[in-house]
Design a protein around this nucleic acid. Structure first.
Lengths: 127, 127
DNA sequence: CAGAATCCATTCGGATACTG
DNA sequence: CAGTATCCGAATGGATTCTG
């Protein structure tokens, strides 16, 4: 992905020694940078065992392909757990894994803060 | 920037009453979902008054256009403050606003957590 | 119901110039 | 140094359709 010639990926000469906050780009942060990803974690965590339909309804306007992709990525990342019940009306429930819980614990305040900030930015000259 | 045709992007009716964790999509969370956005906030906060070159160096592999766009968006969102000194070697410094500080306060633990998680996922079979 | 598959429009992001 | 402008490939995200 990035460049890894042969030198260390660390900072050969860091401008400041404290700037190591950027993960290698390709990890969890990349997943979270996808659309709805963060909200998805938060939503599933809020609902609890969330069915596909519930999540879809919560987002009100996300295409199934996108939502499906996002769910799949999060499941594969070990953030969500998918349980499929082989019943006649097929039921699938997503819920946060232990890792996902931790993540949600970090995301919740962030999203909340973002919402608050967002409310105060309505009268902003956007263009 | 995003999409603002003329229709409402809001949700007139909330599907579930307990699921309100999803901000209206188009606010700060959307900005943060762009590439490098979160890391950028964290980096600038870590460096302090960060020059463009510093940030660029910190990311090691980001095109100037992308970085510039990201910086611009964050500035316009009131998260970063840009100070331009009209000196002969042009110097521009970015730093977190008060809002940005708050944001970084939320992002730091998240990114840190992500890094830790990322380290344990190296042996993943990714195509 | 839950999603996979397909197709397509949009956008993003990267590389490469080129300025003040 | 600090960007902007442009071009283009790749990826994303959306709508639709179909299936178990």
């Amino acid at each position: 992905m990035t460049e890894t010639p042969d030198s260390v990926t660390e900072a050969p000469e860091t401008p400041n020694s404290e700037v190591d906050c950027l993960c290698p780009l390709g990890g969890v942060m990349d997943l979270l940078s996808r659309r709805y990803a963060m909200q998805l974690v938060c939503v599933v965590g809020a609902i609890g065992p969330a069915r596909y339909g519930d999540v879809e309804a919560a987002f009100d306007g996300v295409s199934s392909s996108t939502l499906s992709a996002r769910l799949d990525e999060l499941v594969e990342a070990g953030i969500l757990a998918r349980e499929q019940y082989a019943e006649i009306p097929p039921r699938v429930e997503y819920e946060l894994t232990d890792t996902g819980e931790e993540l949600r614990d970090h995301l919740s305040p962030l999203i909340r803060w973002a919402e608050e900030l967002d409310e105060g930015t309505i009268s902003r000259t956007q263009e």
